[in-house]
Amino acid sequence: MKSDPKQCLYCQSNETLHNLMIEIAQLSVSRVFIFKEQTYHGRCLVAYKDHVDDLNLLNDADRNAFMADVAKVTRAMQKVFNPDKINYGAYADTLEHLHFHLIPKYKGGPDFGGVFQMNPQKVYLSDKEYEEMADSLKKELK
């Protein structure tokens, strides 16, 4: 493990994390978040429960459980948001904690057919809209 959990956004669950996303569920080996920035309607993130730098550091059982959690979230996203495609992003150059960005893409929508923008800061929702989104996803995650 290269990075320090004391410096980790996900491990510390600090103000920076809460400004970026809302935690909505805990699954078998992961935590599920909705991004507050919603240019890509329904964008979520799945973070591994413990501080691990890379998917290849997990044993087979934990890796399979994590990927099952990712698939479970994308199935819920598909039912709730009905995107044309869900893109998966696993970037950890500077934030070394295993996590997947799950980005719903819609034909005719932002960046369809291209790479998504990490944080375009264009679309934010009301508290009620985030709550409704979270409730819908949680219902599908059960």
Rank of each mutant, 00 (worst) to 15 (best):
C8I: 09
N119F: 10
N64Y: 03
G108N: 14
G109V: 01
L9N: 09
E132G: 00
A61S: 14
T16Y: 09
D127N: 15
F81K: 09
E37D: 14
E140W: 02
T39H: 03
L9K: 14
K128Y: 14
E132M: 07
S13I: 07
E140F: 01
E37R: 15
N64P: 05
F66V: 02
G114H: 14
S30K: 11
Q38R: 03
P83R: 05
H97D: 08
N64G: 12
L58Q: 13
Y88P: 10
L102R: 04
I34R: 06
Q38C: 00
L45F: 00
M1I: 06
A65Q: 13
R31W: 09
D135G: 00
G42D: 11
P83W: 02
L102A: 04
N87P: 13
R75L: 14
Q26Y: 03
F116R: 00
E131A: 15
P110K: 02
P120I: 10
M118E: 14
N87A: 15
S3F: 07
D60I: 03
A47Q: 10
S3V: 01
V46S: 10
K49V: 06
G42A: 12
Q78A: 05
D54M: 05
D60S: 13
E96H: 11
V73D: 09
K2I: 15
P83Q: 01
Y124V: 03
Y124P: 08
K139P: 00
M67C: 08
I34A: 06
D62C: 00
E23Q: 13
E15H: 10
L27Q: 11
Y40C: 07
D84I: 12
K142Y: 00
R63G: 00
Y124S: 08
Q12R: 15
K139F: 02
K72S: 02
L98A: 08
K142Q: 04
K79P: 08
F81P: 09
V52R: 11
L141P: 07
K139Y: 04
D69L: 01
Q121C: 07
K138T: 06
L102N: 08
N119D: 12
F66E: 01
H99Q: 02
Y88G: 07
A25I: 01
K85C: 06
R31P: 10
M77W: 08
M1D: 07
E37Y: 13
P83I: 03
M21A: 15
G108A: 13
V29A: 08
E15D: 15
F81Q: 11
D50W: 04
C44F: 01
M133A: 00
K85E: 04
V52F: 06
D84K: 14
A61L: 13
T16M: 08
V115H: 10
V32E: 10
Q12H: 06
H41F: 11
Y10H: 08
L27A: 10
V73R: 09
A65S: 15
Q38W: 00
Y10C: 01
K79Q: 15
T74G: 08
R75V: 05
H41Y: 14
F100H: 12
N56G: 06
L98E: 09
F116L: 01
E96Q: 14
L55Y: 06
N119Q: 09
R43G: 11
T74I: 13
F100S: 04
T94A: 11
D93Q: 05
I24H: 04
Q121T: 10
V70S: 13
